[in-house]
Amino acid sequence: MSGRILVPYDDSGPAEKALEYAFETFPDAAVTALYIVPIPAGYWAAFGDAGELGAEQGREHGEEILENAMTIATEYDRELETEIDTGKPAQTIVDRVEEGEFDTITIGSHGREGVSRILLGSVAEMVVRRSPTTVIVVR
């Protein structure tokens, strides 16, 4: 079905399930785990050098989280590309798909941040509403 799958990954239980689902369901697809440092546009710029430090710490944290995703890939004997981006998570995910790099998004129903909605987290819901490609929501 899909040649390239994007899995937004934040080390939450639903994100892990989404990654596992991608490996199990699409054995021949190239899978990319994406961690997004959730920084609103222009926020860190207001703090000068301190903002750059905060963004850098966010990227370092993302690298640690993606190491956990690599562990899951090893358990499934699969290769996994990892990427870190910065921005508003839902918009960043949709932007990446609009660039044409991915055929499918496999996303956890909710992540670590904010209060979850009844069925979907706010990021998952926004991605489902705005994505130009197939979105699989895993619970």
Rank of each mutant, 00 (worst) to 15 (best):
P38W: 02
D10R: 04
P8D: 09
T133W: 01
K17L: 08
A15H: 02
A46Y: 08
E67F: 13
G48P: 00
Y43A: 15
T71F: 10
S2K: 04
T86A: 09
Y76N: 06
I107T: 04
E67K: 13
I105K: 03
G51K: 07
Q57D: 12
Y76T: 01
R78V: 02
D11I: 01
H110M: 07
L34H: 06
S116P: 15
F26C: 03
D77W: 03
A30N: 11
P14V: 05
V123H: 05
E98A: 09
G108K: 03
F26E: 02
G51A: 10
V123N: 01
S109T: 11
A45T: 15
D49H: 13
Y76E: 07
V138E: 01
A33C: 09
I105P: 04
A22W: 01
P132M: 07
E24N: 10
E24F: 04
E75V: 05
P132L: 06
M70R: 15
E113S: 14
K88P: 02
R139T: 12
V31A: 00
L66H: 02
L80H: 07
G58T: 02
G42L: 05
E101G: 14
E101L: 13
I93A: 04
W44F: 12
Y35M: 05
D103G: 07
I136P: 00
V127N: 00
G100A: 10
I84M: 11
D85P: 02
T25D: 03
S109P: 03
T71Q: 15
G42V: 07
P8L: 08
D85S: 13
G108D: 09
L34K: 08
V135R: 06
R96W: 12
A46T: 12
E83M: 09
P89D: 08
G42K: 10
L34W: 04
D85Y: 03
V123S: 00
E113I: 12
A41K: 14
Y35A: 08
T92A: 15
A18F: 01
N68F: 09
A50L: 15
A50M: 13
T32Q: 04
Y76A: 12
M70A: 10
P14M: 09
G58A: 04
S131Q: 07
E16F: 06
G42E: 11
M126G: 10
T74Q: 14
G54A: 10
Y35Q: 06
P8V: 11
D85N: 11
K17M: 07
V31D: 00
E67N: 13
G13S: 12
E83P: 04
A46R: 15
T25Y: 08
T74V: 15
E81N: 13
F47G: 14
R78K: 14
G100L: 08
L66Y: 01
S122P: 04
T71H: 14
E75D: 15
K17R: 15
I65E: 02
